[in-house]
């Protein structure tokens, strides 16, 4: 016997908070598992890795907030986030690939990222969707990523404007990435997210400036975490790229035999 909502009368009805917990958060996993890798994607540094919060990172801790304001008449907060989730890779700057599930952003999904760093260096890493609801979603990084932490994408309506926001809470994962961030990496990251937000606004027919606010939450580096360098996606991706000619020759020989 069911009520008008299709809920069996003798079943306990979960309260609103419990239902939100179950649908919005990723299920607990100890290590990441990449289910599908598209052809042409470099899939390194994700499978079997643990997630890493800012607590596990090495460098100074930063909170970076990027915002763009769009007239609410053009898009509501909920519609903006829905579009962002469904078309997330489309908004990334050129030269960077986000290989996520075709169904869009959903809690627990793991995506492979192929990024282009200065000097045309290719870097393979990934993210897991930690959280997603109607007005926000959060991607968390695995060990070995450039930074340990997460990025929350959200939208809110303030008076007659929809404010689209990307907020990063992070520490550089290891001493090499910390050095890279200090020597221009922070600036490059700012440009990356400013371009992303500009692209989101363009989707809704709006052009505007991105407001960027950068706060150093913790000046201290966590020197005890220097060993994170062994999992560095930059080092592992570089070795992988150097080995590409050798792998091509090996493939060619095995086809002939």
């Amino acid at each position: 016997m069911s009520d008008e909502n299709g809920v069996a009368a003798d079943q306990p009805v979960p309260d609103e908070s419990t239902a939100r917990e179950a649908t919005n958060w990723a299920k607990a996993v100890s290590r990441l598992n990449v289910s599908e890798v598209p052809e042409g994607a470099m899939n390194l540094n994700v499978e079997g890795r643990r997630l890493a919060s800012p607590i596990q990172g090495f460098g100074k801790m930063w909170q970076k907030t990027y915002q763009i304001r769009i007239p609410t008449a053009k898009v509501s907060a909920v519609d903006l986030v829905e579009t962002w989730k469904q078309n997330f890779p489309d908004f990334w700057p050129e030269g960077n690939q986000f290989y996520g599930p075709l169904t869009g952003i959903a809690p627990g999904e793991v995506a492979v990222l192929n990024m282009t760093l200065p000097g045309k260096m290719k870097l393979s890493t990934g993210v897991m969707v930690l959280y997603a609801d109607e007005e926000s979603f959060t991607l968390m990084t695995p060990e070995g990523h450039m930074f340990a932490g997460w990025i929350t994408f959200s939208a809110t309506e303030v008076e007659d404007e929809t404010v689209a926001q990307a907020q990063v809470l992070m520490r550089a994962s290891d001493p090499i990435f910390e050095l890279g961030l200090t020597l221009g990496g922070h600036k490059q990251e700012n440009v990356f997210w400013e371009e992303t937000l500009t692209n989101v606004a363009k989707r809704f027919g709006h052009e505007g400036d991105v407001d960027t606010a950068v706060v150093c939450v913790d000046q201290k580096r966590q020197w005890g975490r220097w060993r994170n360098i062994w999992q560095s996606s930059a080092i592992r991706s570089t070795f992988y790229m150097f080995g590409a000619p050798g792998r091509a020759i090996k493939r060619g020989l095995s086809r002939k035999s």
């Binding site: 908070s17 939100r20 917990e21 919005n24 919060s53 800012p54 607590i55 801790m61 909170q63 930690l130 959280y131 609801d133 926000s136 959060t138 997460w150 929350t152 959200s154 907020q167 809470l169 939450v217 913790d218």
Partner: peptide, 21 residues
């Protein structure tokens, strides 16, 4: 606690840093 989202987890990390300081 009624509910916590990912923004709440971020706040706890920030609180933790302040406490460690």
């Amino acid at each position: 606690l009624d509910y916590m989202n990912s923004g709440g987890i971020g706040l706890l990390v920030t609180l933790l840093v302040r406490a460690q300081r």
